[in-house]
Design a protein around this nucleic acid. Sequence first.
DNA 1: CATTGTCGTTAGTTTGGCTAATGAGTTAGA
DNA 2: TCTAACTCATTAGCCAAACTAACGACAATG
Lengths: 143, 143
Amino acid sequence: MPTAAIRSALSADLRNSVMRLSRRLRVERADHGLMLNQISVLAILDRHGPLTPSELAAHEGIRPPSMTKTVQCLFEGGYVERTPDPLDGRQVVVSLTPTARQLIKADRARRDAWLAQRLAELTADERAILRDAAPILDRLAGR
Amino acid sequence: MPTAAIRSALSADLRNSVMRLSRRLRVERADHGLMLNQISVLAILDRHGPLTPSELAAHEGIRPPSMTKTVQCLFEGGYVERTPDPLDGRQVVVSLTPTARQLIKADRARRDAWLAQRLAELTADERAILRDAAPILDRLAGR
DNA sequence: CATTGTCGTTAGTTTGGCTAATGAGTTAGA
DNA sequence: TCTAACTCATTAGCCAAACTAACGACAATG
């Protein structure tokens, strides 16, 4: 098999795997009915503390308007608060509500975040491969 | 850093990388204006010869109605033909037109399929990691 | 103090999945 | 044989989640 063909096969396989997993990730939701991207935002807020919508968007690698929607959903569910920044009236600071904190805690305990669950079922070697692969995928996506 | 936290970080990183790359893949198109998933279908037909819509859907890991849409687009662009199977009147066989064959050939020569291009810019080691990672991602997606 | 820029949001579009249902055609069983 | 059940492709309609463009409020700067 010539090099070009091998690369072409990798391209096809990788594309398939990535698209499939992303479809799965998009649809999958934990038992509290939150979408995985919403949970991800909660996790970011938990790790970094209150952030503005733009900062959140940067973390997720999406545009601010997309993040506004996610935050809106979380707000309606009572998971986040939006408080205007007293120093800069343009900015809004998004922070977790006690409800969200409790949910995150329970989530972590029960390990019911879908992807984490699946990852736990892999071998250590397989997880190591994915750990190596993640930044490469990121670079492919073009930062 | 405790094991659980490491795994949780992997989960977040991997999710991010996969979603980012998938968004990129979805949007990216070659210079002939075809979406990457359409090009992928052409590539499958090129490799396997004529296939039915269901077979194509299975290859891409999507449902038949979704494939019908893609095939419809390709048909309107003059890239595929749909011929009824003479043995089984329910089935349709999708095959490449000369236009498509020519495009595939040119594509291959110029290597302008977006992902293949990016992959070519990686080191051999990095590609090896991705080659190992792809089937694991597939298993995460749930077969 | 007026212009220019930034932030969050709104509005509207695009893409590409999905399920459910339909119609044509096949297969199997009474 | 003829009817019931199944299979395949398609249609219709829904939904999630990204995007761009534009807007209003506010800030910063000349």
